[in-house]
């Protein structure tokens, strides 16, 4: 193993994460406890699911800004289908996830069939889907779910928060797909050179369509988990989550220009952000200080990895 391949972004990030964990647990003895770390896992699941799907999207050189709005729309529909239309809750949740997935599919259609750049297309649907959520909900919340529903967002399975299992499974499956399957290779190929990918006979449009649909699906699943965690629905749920997810993906070393990135990196980026948010708060730093620090870490981490990489190629 040469030095160059060793100093990959993920390794660098892992070192940074360990360093952060060490410093933070030295600052507060309540930080590095199993209970606290598992609880942090609970809090980062929704962003995590979205970020994992976003890794694929960004690796193709695209972006999906509408995920927060899809989350809001799915959350609202879960409640409305169940309460107002009288559909049984499991069916309501599945139907709402189907609509959320469909919203992602519509993004994909606009991007692939109409050749609208992803940023513009999803910027427009960000407004549209949020608007639909507001319109459907008429600004009302749906509350009073049955107890079993809260297992998903507030319960535990084998001592670990339920949704953390979902996140783990999603991360492993996604990592395998991206690294070892034809689909993953097509994703990278589109990101590095779309023209070449098309000439090599890869299904560029089909893959992109599938990825945006998957992004919608991830946001929709995150929505149901979110509803279960906070036990209510609101049309403003998930606003701004797209920036959190993109921050995690980019911090994780996925190139915004496409062609490079791993799920492992995204998960590391996610953990680093969550550890900073939680650890700094426990160490007595206020929320606004934490926001600033995360901004600085984002820039410095990407800067450092850019410098390492350049020195490696010399």
């Amino acid at each position: 193993m040469t030095l160059r391949s060793f100093i990959r972004h993920e390794t660098f990030l892992a070192i940074l994460l360990v360093l952060a964990l060490f410093v933070l647990s030295w600052q507060s003895d309540r930080f590095f406890t199993v209970a606290n770390l598992l609880n942090q896992g609970r809090l980062m699941t929704e962003t995590g699911l979205i970020a994992i799907a976003m890794t694929f999207v960004i690796a193709t050189g695209g972006i999906d800004l509408s995920v927060g709005s899809i989350l809001g729309l799915t959350a609202i529909l879960t409640g409305v289908f169940w309460k107002n239309l009288g559909v049984p809750l499991p069916a309501a949740a599945v139907a709402a996830i189907a609509v959320g997935t469909f919203a992602g599919y519509v993004n994909g259609l606009i991007i692939t069939r109409f050749r609208v750049p992803a940023l513009i297309a999803t910027l427009a649907t960000l407004a549209l889907y949020r608007g639909l959520a507001e319109g459907v909900s008429q600004a009302r919340s749906v509350r009073g779910y049955p107890d079993w529903f809260y297992v998903l967002g507030q319960g535990e399975v084998l001592g670990v928060p339920t949704q953390l299992w979902i996140l783990l499974i999603a991360a492993v499956v996604a990592a395998v797909i991206l690294a070892y399957t034809r689909w993953g290779r097509t994703t990278y190929a589109i990101g590095s050179n779309e023209v070449a990918a098309r000439f090599s006979g890869l299904s560029v449009e089909g893959t992109k369509l599938a990825l945006y649909t998957m992004s919608g699906f991830a946001a929709a699943v995150a929505a149901v988990i979110f509803v279960s965690r906070v036990s209510t629905t609101r049309s403003d749920m998930g606003s701004g989550i797209e920036l959190d997810a993109i921050t995690a993906v980019v911090l994780g070393g996925t190139s915004i220009f496409g062609g490079r990135g791993t799920v492992l990196g995204t998960v590391l980026g996610l953990c680093l952000i969550q550890a900073l948010k939680n650890g700094l708060s426990l160490a007595g730093v206020k929320g606004d200080g934490t926001i600033m620090l995360i901004g600085i870490v984002l820039i410095l981490a990407v800067l450092a990895s850019a410098i390492f990489e350049r020195s490696g190629t010399r």
Binding site: V250, D288, I291, I299
Partner: peptide, 18 residues
């Protein structure tokens, strides 16, 4: 430094807002 502008400005957004 060749950092993509969306990364730099995402960071700047956090720093300025906080």
């Amino acid at each position: 430094f060749r950092i993509p502008s969306i990364v730099v400005t995402l960071g700047a957004l956090s720093i300025l807002r906080g």
